[in-house]
């Protein structure tokens, strides 16, 4: 069996063998459920068969949820010294990073999969735009993958989980809010670059149901970049 899969399986089991997996799953579902169906500008107030509210709020919660999932992955291995055990086995730093990434990403996917009943409900309520909803889910998965890669990178830096969590949160906030916010103050190419780098720019167009190659390339590059940095950090051993 490929080491990537062996590691991913162990870590995924770890989430469900402890409280963390269930806790994170329920926290996400409670909040996203409340904001989609009960609080604020929810589905019943809008009187539309759309999940826009869900796709709008989901990144706000994933912002916290994903770092909470990823924070222990490498930091804890470093703290307890088990990283030495892993890397002296037949496992490369790349396989380690990919395995950890895969486990966290699958965990996020499972969490998101629990919202599929929302889709089924909305379809019953009226004429839903299936394209937009499917696009929204694809966007959500790409966004989660990017957050997961950022989280894994943050976790690879130090042997402290809190530091990993906060750092991942800060990077997520930068990509989700700050780049776009600052970008609006600049005109010309600086503003263009900052806006191109910000997540909402790409996420919103996908969740409208427009699947553009450049958005997929954007998320792909983010994932690749942060996983690569994490690998670099781990393989630099002195």
């Amino acid at each position: 069996m490929n080491p990537v899969w062996v590691i991913a399986k162990k870590e995924l089991n770890g989430y469900f063998n402890s409280l963390i997996g269930y806790l994170i799953l329920s926290i996400f579902l409670i909040f996203i459920g409340a904001f989609t169906w009960l609080i604020g500008n929810d589905v019943f107030i809008r009187q539309q068969a759309s999940l826009d509210e869900f796709f709008g709020w989901a990144p706000m919660f994933l912002l916290f949820i994903v770092p909470a999932l990823t924070m222990k992955q490498i930091a804890e291995e470093k703290r307890s010294g088990t990283i030495e055990l892993l890397l002296t086995k037949n496992v490369s730093s790349r396989q380690l990073v990919l395995g950890k990434f895969l486990a966290c990403f699958l965990m996020v996917c499972i969490t998101i999969a629990f919202t599929i009943p929302y889709y089924l409900t909305i379809v019953q309520l009226g004429n839903a735009d299936h394209g937009a909803i499917i696009g929204g889910y694809i966007g959500l998965l790409l966004l989660s993958a990017a957050f997961t890669a950022i989280g894994i990178f943050a976790s690879s830096l130090k042997d402290n989980q809190i530091v990993a969590f906060l750092l991942a949160l800060v990077i997520n906030v930068i990509f989700l809010f700050i780049l776009g916010f600052v970008g609006n103050y600049f005109s010309g190419w600086v503003g263009d670059i900052l806006n191109t780098l910000s997540i909402p720019n790409h996420y919103t167009s996908i969740s409208r149901g427009v699947l553009d190659t450049k958005d997929i390339v954007y998320f792909g590059s983010l994932i690749f970049l942060f996983l690569f940095l994490a690998e670099l950090k781990i393989s630099k051993k002195s």
């Binding site: 069996m1 080491p3 062996v6 590691i7 162990k10 770890g14 063998n17 402890s18 307890s80 010294g81 088990t82 030495e84 055990l85 892993l86 002296t88 086995k89 037949n90 496992v91």
Partner: peptide, 29 residues
């Protein structure tokens, strides 16, 4: 590395794993 068996200095282990699962994990790796 697959020809080497290594017991590191402070014997780091996954404390929340059962012995059998841990050995299985190490064997697969």
């Amino acid at each position: 590395n697959r020809h080497i068996g290594y017991l590191p200095e402070h014997n780091p282990l996954y404390l929340d794993m059962p012995v059998i699962d841990y050995l299985e994990y190490c064997a697969s790796l």
